[in-house]
């Protein structure tokens, strides 16, 4: 769909055997709606998992439970062997290790781009301010918005804002990055600049969970595709296998609707 160039080594980076994020038997309800049903999923260190599925299938909710922006009703989620704390300082500490990129960017509107990337380092990691700024500038350069450092988020395009959001998350040196539909709010011409940054990250061995509708990205960057429908994981497979030969009828139906053009 989108003509993203494959970063070399993206797929060759074989996932290590140990699991970084493990969800087991996770259930969640929104009122009467059983939005996550007995979810079992484990994500290996360095693995890129792309979660796809129709709207309302629970994929965003799944992504948000991993750093407990959504609570779960039952089951367990562990990150790097530690179970997610319910609240308080322990939870905050764990969240610092989990980077999150949102559909609507959510850059702090009253702070400059640079401040957005510095804030977490200084306030959570207790980093030295000068060092934090240096690191922030390096990260902003890396995602291609270094020249915008002193502007406010509202002065940037959507694609630029989302790249800043990625830099903000990376500044915390996260163990895993969660992407909740990172390109869904972008104009088509800005999608690629964000996907390229994500490709690059995947190529560098970052553990990533990506909820997306970008099938091109799923094909080229994912180690594994997880297909969700109606609150359940219907199918998990390598991207090649999933896109060329889906096993379940639900996935066949979904792919026939989106891949026909």
């Amino acid at each position: 769909m989108s003509g993203v160039s494959v970063t070399e080594g993206a797929k060759d980076a074989a996932p290590a055997a140990d699991s970084l994020v493990v969800l087991s038997n996770v259930n969640k309800h929104f009122g009467a709606l059983h939005v996550l049903q007995d979810i079992d999923l484990s994500i290996a260190r360095g693995e890129v998992v792309v979660v796809i599925g129709p709207s309302g299938s629970g994929k965003s909710t799944l992504c948000r439970t991993i750093n407990r922006l959504e609570t779960i009703d039952s089951g367990t989620i562990t990150i790097d062997g530690k179970e997610l704390p319910a609240e308080g300082k322990d939870l905050a500490r764990l969240r610092a290790d989990v980077g999150m990129v949102f559909q609507s960017f959510n850059l702090f509107a009253h702070k400059t781009v640079l401040e957005n990337v510095v804030l977490g380092q200084v306030k959570v990691r207790k980093a030295d301010r000068a060092a934090a700024e240096q690191k922030a500038r390096a990260l902003l350069d890396r995602v291609g918005v270094g020249s915008q450092a002193d502007k406010y988020p509202a002065q940037l395009s959507g694609g630029q804002q989302q790249r800043v959001a990625i830099a903000r998350a990376l500044a915390m040196d996260p163990k895993v990055m969660l992407f909740d539909e990172p390109t869904s709010a972008l104009d088509p011409e800005m999608i690629n600049e964000v996907l390229e940054v994500m490709q690059q990250l995947a190529g560098e061995g970052m553990t990533m969970v990506v909820v997306t509708h970008e099938m091109g990205f799923a094909r080229s960057a994912a180690n594994r595709v997880v297909f969700m429908a109606d609150g359940k994981i219907v199918e998990e497979a390598a991207p090649e296998q999933f896109f060329s030969n889906p096993r379940s009828d639900r996935a066949k139906d979904f792919l026939s609707k989106i891949l026909h053009h």
Partner: peptide, 8 residues
């Protein structure tokens, strides 16, 4: 949410 996700 973004602030909480950073660990604040």
């Amino acid at each position: 949410e973004a602030a909480r996700a950073l660990g604040l």
